[in-house]
Nucleic acid binder design. Structure first.
Lengths: 311, 311
DNA sequence: TATATCGATAAGCAGAGCTGATGGTGAGCT
DNA sequence: AGCTCACCATCAGCTCTGCTTATCGATATA
């Protein structure tokens, strides 16, 4: 296999341009003998002469001309590649695959997308919304770069950083507004509407109500928080939703929202990624952005909803 | 300036394909540590990670994916370049710029072109027909690779190899056939038609007739041997032409051709090239081909013309 | 003939890059 | 839980590449 080096190609290109060993060597920041040797080496490995040396002139051979044209193409591509690396080095850019759980996605995504696009113009955001187990699987398999989920995950091999905590609030028919805030025990007496199996939020809600092993007929599963709230508005039952969903979901339904008394149920949303991910540093940066976006979203949400405080 | 080597690119490509340091190292015929170090080095010089290593798997990062695509393009171009060199190494190929003097070109070119094209399919023949001084100039300036001229040239810096020698023959009107063969002295009494100034053949003919300083009105200049022969046919005078031109030029004119008695005038046709030409080896090969082609042409010419022998 | 220019060559040295051995870590089996 | 295996990173040592300075040889110039 004929083999030459990029260095030789660069030296060659310089010599082809200057047609003078001394000058070309200066440009390459090496001594003239070094250039002579590398050119000789290159010609040797090619098995053909690139230059025709006479005492007074250095000329490209016909083969050298063609070689030079192609060599320049290659060097251009190589420089482009270096440029690509330089661009990708610090600034987050290129494809970034983020997974988000469904009980966060609708409320956080607009802000996340907006902020990330604004801060990292070269970013190609690739979003995936599904339940935690699938996110974890896709993350560990390398099909996602990071995911926004409820902590803790405690999956070995995955790093997790908290973003924010949010309380769960009770959503009940509008007519119930003003009634006393139910505690965990009285919740069990109500018809609780929950998300389908697989959603972590369902498990968290059940856990709060100590209803882990509730009889199925007491519950009714919805496929999204929006559905649940609409069902509550229709008087079918009550439900829990995370604080962040309040502004969006309770706007168009005759429901009332109330916080629980301490200890109020809550969850911590965080970001996770592989411990081995080379993007770790940039992902931490992304986490900061998401955290800020979430705070902003919650503030706006509270203002819009005139969120009632319950303690 | 970020800089990596082709070797690193090849190693990287192998690892990107196999996703396994050991296997990739085997393919590259190096040890696993060597591969690890080169990849690490590459990532270091790029300032970004190409692979994500975990204990059980080696995966390309997003950046690595893009890098791999471009790296493969570059490696392909490099291999193509090597291939180009290999093709150019032994077999003569690519552009070959040949100059030929006008008193040889019409008679030798068909055979030369045919033979060279047949023997070197990759050859791009670039022909130039002009007088010797211009050929020499273009040759020394690197605008020609070789030239076919009458020897000797005795130009320092140019190598010359003889191809063949050919006699000059006398062309006289058809009615003169059978008349005694004139010697050099009697030639001076005839009206001699010659090529314009600058043609070496003119000088050679004049030299033979010892007419170096002949009075202009005794001569008549033609721009080609064909013209001269037609003029002879019209009874305007006599001329000398090289043996090789006989078959072609005397076919369509009422002229007779006769050889001179010994010592017959003659010239040696040869090939010349720059001493510094890297094509020297291949040009010597071309010389062999041209020599053979010339011999063949002369044989065919003699047979066709029923060339009269005069000695 | 003397001088300047320019590429090739020589000698010596620093460092790149390879090998074989070893370390560390996570996965899977018992 | 502990053992073992697979796999990549690291280390020490050696070889050879590739650089430098100094010098040579050839050629054009004055």
């Amino acid at each position: 296999m004929v083999s030459f080096t990029l260095k030789q190609l660069r030296y060659f290109e310089a010599l082809a341009r200057h047609r003078h060993f001394g000058h070309a060597a200066d440009v390459c920041a090496i001594s003239q003998p070094a250039l002579s040797m590398q050119i000789k080496e290159l010609e040797g490995s090619l098995g053909a002469a690139l230059f025709e040396r006479s005492a007074r002139s250095v000329r490209l051979t016909g083969f050298g001309e063609e070689f030079a044209a192609r060599a320049r193409e290659i060097l251009r591509a190589v420089d482009e590649l270096s440029e690509l690396a330089r661009a990708a080095r610090d600034r987050l850019s290129g494809r970034l695959r983020i997974g988000i759980i469904p009980t966060v996605a609708p409320y956080l995504l607009p802000a996340i997308i907006g902020e990330l696009s604004r801060l990292f113009p070269g970013l190609d955001l690739n979003l995936r919304e599904t339940i935690t187990p699938r996110l974890i699987r896709e993350l560990t398999e390398g099909r996602l770069d990071t995911a926004v989920v409820a902590l803790p995950i405690s999956e070995r091999g995955l790093a997790e950083v908290p973003l924010f905590s949010e309380e769960f609030v009770l959503v009940r028919p509008h007519g119930d507004a003003g009634k006393p805030v139910p505690d965990r025990e009285s919740l069990r007496e109500m018809r609780l509407l929950l998300l389908e199996e697989g959603h972590c939020f369902r498990d968290q809600a059940l856990s709060f109500c100590d209803l882990r092993h509730a009889r199925p007929r007491e519950l009714l599963d919805g496929s999204s928080l929006a559905t649940l709230v609409q069902m509550v508005g229709a008087g079918i039952g009550v439900t829990l939703i995370p604080e962040m969903a309040v502004a969006v979901e309770t706007r168009s339904a005759p429901v009332s929202v109330v916080r629980f008394a301490d200890p109020a149920p809550q969850r911590t949303i965080g970001m996770i990624w592989r411990n081995t991910s080379p993007l770790a540093r940039q992902l931490a940066e992304v986490a900061d952005v998401v955290r800020a976006a979430a705070a902003k979203t919650r503030d706006v949400g509270k203002a819009q909803a005139g969120m009632p405080g319950a303690g």
